[in-house]
């Protein structure tokens, strides 16, 4: 038996509490009977029910889902194509290109938001769903590419060569070998992009316009008038769906590596 290090175990638990206590409290108070956050008056679903009866909430939800779906489909298609392209062309500046592609992941979101806002206004575009979709597609692409590039790197080039050797044209190789093999990665990338879009606040804050309020923006609007139990309920729903999406994405990403190691 391994001897446990009690100090380490204790510290780990402390970290977990530190990370999740605020979220746990938020979720807990979304079921609170009382309107005041500090007092626990008993369990209720009524805040959730009132959410679904709220037309504005439903509108924000519809906006979020539409924007999320379209932007993540676009990001997945573009990201997949770019990953495959980068793998195939032995570009001279490959490392530089790779760096440039992954840079948006670490650039402060507020910069990206500001930059996009400036761009859109330069182009005289009206802020709204279209600009939100473009912005979300932009920041999702690097994440999709990270997942799919890892997948492609695992695959090596032997399978592609085998396909060509057996008479498959480049398109046939893509259709029958590359795409089926990286499909789990594509699905994982799509789910990741969808999650990112659903959760994004900062960039959306810059590029959203009238009638394009997403859920995070709506929550922010509500909070300005004080934290109500509805906000807690809405946030809880957002957290739960995000966690579910990430779990499913992770399952796909792993299924990935299992089918390929043979």
């Amino acid at each position: 038996m391994k001897k446990r290090n009690n100090a380490l175990t204790g510290f780990s638990w402390l970290m977990i509490v530190f990370l999740y206590l605020p979220i746990a409290i938020l979720i807990l108070y979304s079921f609170n009977e009382s309107r005041i956050n500090a007092v626990w008056n008993g369990f209720t679903w009524k805040w959730y029910i009132s959410l679904f009866e709220n037309r504005q909430v439903m509108q924000a939800l519809t906006n979020s889902l539409t924007i999320g779906l379209i932007s993540s489909i676009l990001a997945t298609v573009l990201g997949t194509a770019a990953s495959i392209g980068i793998k195939h062309y032995s570009l001279r500046w490959r490392n530089v290109v790779n760096g440039l592609i992954y840079l948006p992941i670490v650039i402060p979101e507020i910069m990206l938001g500001l930059a996009l806002l400036v761009l859109f206004s330069q182009m005289k575009m009206d802020l709204g769903k279209a600009t939100l979709i473009m912005a979300h597609t932009t920041f999702s692409i690097p994440f999709v590419m990270v997942i799919i590039s890892a997948r492609l790197a695992d695959m090596g080039k032997e399978l592609e060569e085998a396909a060509q050797d057996l008479g498959a044209t480049p398109w046939q190789t893509m259709r029958y070998v590359i795409l089926p093999l990286i499909m789990p990665g594509i699905v994982a990338g799509f789910l990741m992009a969808f999650t990112l879009s659903l959760d994004d606040f900062i960039i959306s804050f810059f590029v959203a316009g009238p009638n394009s309020t997403t859920l995070p923006l709506y929550i922010y609007g509500l909070v300005k008038r004080g934290v109500s139990p509805e906000v807690n309920a809405l946030s809880t729903l957002l957290i739960v769906s995000t966690v579910l999406l990430v779990i499913v994405a992770e399952l796909f990403r792993r299924k990935d590596s299992k089918t390929i190691t043979y």
């Binding site: 089926p180 089918t259 043979y262």
Partner: peptide, 20 residues
């Protein structure tokens, strides 16, 4: 003539069988 049009076939070192 690209590889896919050459009238010959190759047996790869690690076989390169399609896992799917």
């Amino acid at each position: 003539v690209p590889a896919y049009q050459r009238d010959m076939n190759m047996v790869f070192q690690q076989y390169a069988l399609f896992p799917h």
